[in-house]
Design a protein around this nucleic acid. Structure first.
Lengths: 214, 214
DNA sequence: ATTATCTATAGATCTATAGATAATGC
DNA sequence: ATTATCTATAGATCTATAGATAATGC
């Protein structure tokens, strides 16, 4: 359990401190995601991280700043993968269908590999306008990145208002993915059907709306 | 403030007690929706309802049962409006497009007139499997009601698998409505655009996916 | 000398109950 | 006699801090 923070041989004091810091964030990440930030005490976090309550306060000051640090770490990591996936060269030669499939795959993956984040992120965003703006910016970067990839290929799109349609379709895809990954929001076929069916129908709905075949 | 519970002239003891009971539920409804059930103390609820902490416990036993009673009341009210809206005679002579528009209007209205419920409902469902099943049943009743209205009109639908398509499209519409009504889940065009645009594009996406014009 | 860590605890809530009170219902 | 209500409070957490300790860094 607490083994993560015991000093390892040949480890500097700075290194161990950084490891403790990360262990606390990891512990908060899991516990906040499982039970919500409010239902999680600093004592719970400390126990899981294998350190004391005092140590948590030493590193983060208070609970609010611990949540902020968690969000910041998430944003930092996510930023990098977004920058990679929206890079135009990556999609050279690909049409609208392939790009939409890439958007869905990326969004699904992001939600699955970071299930820990959705809950504390939304909770924090609700009450903290700074965090809300940061997350909105992150989402916009992903969406605008894909939107401009699609805009360049607007000749494939038969919808009378391509700009509106592109934004709407990306948001619609994000919405069904969020619904699928948060069963308590809306029990539905979106959740019960197998992954291939889900992706296929979501993409077919997008293609039909955009009128790709005209 | 507390005036709601003061005895009114010519009011029986039973009546006043029922009014107190309802006032506590109303208070919990608002506070739980605004701040979350966990962040709301029984003392907050009592103050808002204009009664004492002891009175809340007299009526509901404990906090968990207060949440349950709130969910039950919501379910009871909602059940009635669902039964009305999915009644086949109401849609006699209407095509798929009109019915889908009705589904969207009803879902939008439900979310707007009961904003108070979404949060405590989801919070409770997350931890309480009985409530989760109840809410799933409620949603299923709405969805299955509309699904059978659409199924009867399947000749209008060009999608190769009408049953799958009907369920998928209803869930997709629900997902974009939820996204629109919960800005902290996903900042997006879905939220920023005016109501008419939102409804129009959502319905156009549905119609295109179902292939209503073939 | 600094600082990462721990232990112990003060102070603030919050849930739930006990017991008193006063008004209705049978 | 019952019960809806109130006041007061016990007991359980939970946040945050104070102060001690021991190991590193300059």
């Amino acid at each position: 359990m607490g083994a993560a923070v015991l000093s390892a041989p040949g480890e500097s004091r700075r290194e161990r401190s950084a490891r403790t810091y990360a262990a606390v964030l990891d512990a908060a990440d899991r516990l906040f995601a499982e039970n919500g930030a409010e239902a999680t005490s600093i004592s719970d976090v400390a126990t899981r991280a294998g350190c004391s309550v005092g140590t948590v306060y030493h590193h983060f000051g208070d609970k609010k700043r611990l949540l902020h640090a968690l969000v910041e770490r998430y944003i930092g990591r996510f930023q990098i993968t977004i920058d990679e996936v929206v890079a135009p060269p990556r999609w050279a030669g690909s049409g609208v269908r392939v790009i939409l499939a890439g958007y869905v795959a990326f969004s699904l993956e992001a939600g699955q590999s970071r299930p820990a984040f959705a809950r504390p992120g939304a909770e924090t965003a609700r009450s903290d306008s700074k965090v809300r703006l940061q997350l909105a910016g992150l989402h916009s970067e992903l969406k605008d990145g894909f939107a401009s990839l699609l805009l360049v290929r607007r000749k494939e799109i038969g919808h009378p208002n391509p700009i509106l349609a592109i934004h709407f379709v990306l948001d619609q895809l994000a919405a069904v993915i969020i619904a699928r990954q948060n069963p308590f929001l809306m029990p539905s076929t979106l959740i019960e059907c197998p992954s291939e069916t889900f992706v296929q129908e979501a993409l077919e709905a997008a293609a039909a709306y955009l009128r790709l075949d005209e």
